[in-house]
């Protein structure tokens, strides 16, 4: 990718401040092992040379089809996956290769909210202990003050204090997600990566959790990376959105600009694939994106989207486009505008 990409974010007036996190040409590969010796034969390029800035107080939405690398980026940011190439900074400190011991104090600054709160909460621990554990582990506050802090956290996420005596299975999906959020907040983080936090919830509950996340952001000045395939939720909660395809960012823009006037053909087709919100809009002409994303172990030559792109030309088959400059960036030789 060209060097212009690292300047893109700074051009945006809202993001004049210093980024809280920076990714510079970050790649995360998963090995494909085969044979009786279990040797690495090839790599799945889940994230391939991504450059991205995240600014304090913003919500950066990450969208794309399954397998595009959006979850892997989120996990790479928090060092839950090892980076193959490239560098990651948290504020002024480079964290790409920090040891676990030196990473530990930083872990309180960055937290993760999972899609399935059931899987991320120990079923044998009471909610009170679940919330107290991270505070113990990081010795954040005195032992005597922890109980009070648990009450405060529960109140913050809208659960009754009596919840601390109960086990996770006694709660509904939405309430469990509130517990997951409270646990993430217990170490007073500044950056939270939310990986599909509402996808497993009922429609009537999704809105509650989205509103809660937004209130908490305002109250605590949090920065979010919001990973989701539900475009409606992403539009609602994000400030900027990055669209990913086969391990690369193909478009990065302010959310309204992205949804109202996409520049990349992939973004346009992704938006059109979303079901209509009123039956009268059914007859509106739309192009259906054919086929499926190819295997990330062996991405197509040239522009990775060209085999599915209705506007592909000779150049797209040979030359890989880079994310162009400007506040509304797209990686396309022939952008829509």
């Amino acid at each position: 990718m060209t060097h212009t990409t690292s300047n893109i974010n700074q051009l945006h007036p809202v993001h004049a401040s210093k980024p809280i996190m920076r990714l510079d040409h970050v790649s995360t590969y998963y090995p494909i092992r085969r044979g009786i010796l279990n040797r690495t034969k090839d790599y799945i390029r889940a994230v391939d040379s991504v450059t991205l800035n995240i600014y304090p107080g913003e919500t950066l939405g990450l969208v794309g089809e399954s397998g595009c690398g959006k979850s892997t980026i989120g996990r790479t940011m928090l060092r839950l996956e090892e980076t193959h190439e490239g560098r990651i900074w948290f504020e002024d400190e480079e964290i790409t290769r920090l040891s676990d011991r030196r990473m530990k104090p930083l872990r309180t600054q960055m937290q993760f909210i999972f899609q399935d709160p059931q899987a991320s909460l120990n079923p044998r621990q009471r909610v009170g202990d679940l919330l107290a554990e991270p505070m113990h582990a990081h010795r954040l506050i005195e032992k005597g003050a922890i109980a009070e802090e648990v009450d405060r956290l529960l109140e913050l996420v809208g659960l009754p204090r009596s919840s601390k005596e109960r086990f996770p299975h006694e709660f509904s999906g939405g309430q469990r997600q509130r517990i997951g959020i409270a646990r993430a907040l217990s170490v007073k983080p500044r950056l939270i990566v939310c990986d599909e936090p509402v996808s497993a919830l009922d429609v009537s509950i999704q809105a509650q959790i989205l509103n809660l996340l937004q209130d908490l952001q305002k109250e605590l000045g949090l920065t979010y990376v919001f990973i989701a395939h539900g475009l409606g939720a992403v539009r609602y909660i994000s400030s900027r959105i990055a669209v990913m395809y086969l391990g690369r960012i193909v478009e990065l823009a302010d959310k309204n600009s992205l949804f109202d006037a996409p520049r990349h053909p992939y973004t346009q087709l992704l938006l059109q694939a979303n079901p209509v919100h009123h039956p009268q809009l059914r007859s509106r002409p739309k192009t259906i994106l054919e086929g499926e994303a190819p295997n990330p172990a062996n991405p197509p030559q040239g522009c990775r989207f060209h085999p599915r792109c209705p506007y592909a030309q000779a150049r797209c088959r040979k030359e890989e486009p880079q994310l162009d400059g400007g506040a509304h960036a797209a990686a396309c030789h022939y952008p829509l505008w």
Partner: peptide, 16 residues
């Protein structure tokens, strides 16, 4: 409660 991709929202302005 259903957020749609067609609703224009400004940051933190309206709630679901």
């Amino acid at each position: 409660a259903m957020p749609t991709i067609h609703t224009q929202t400004d940051e933190g302005e309206d709630r679901l």
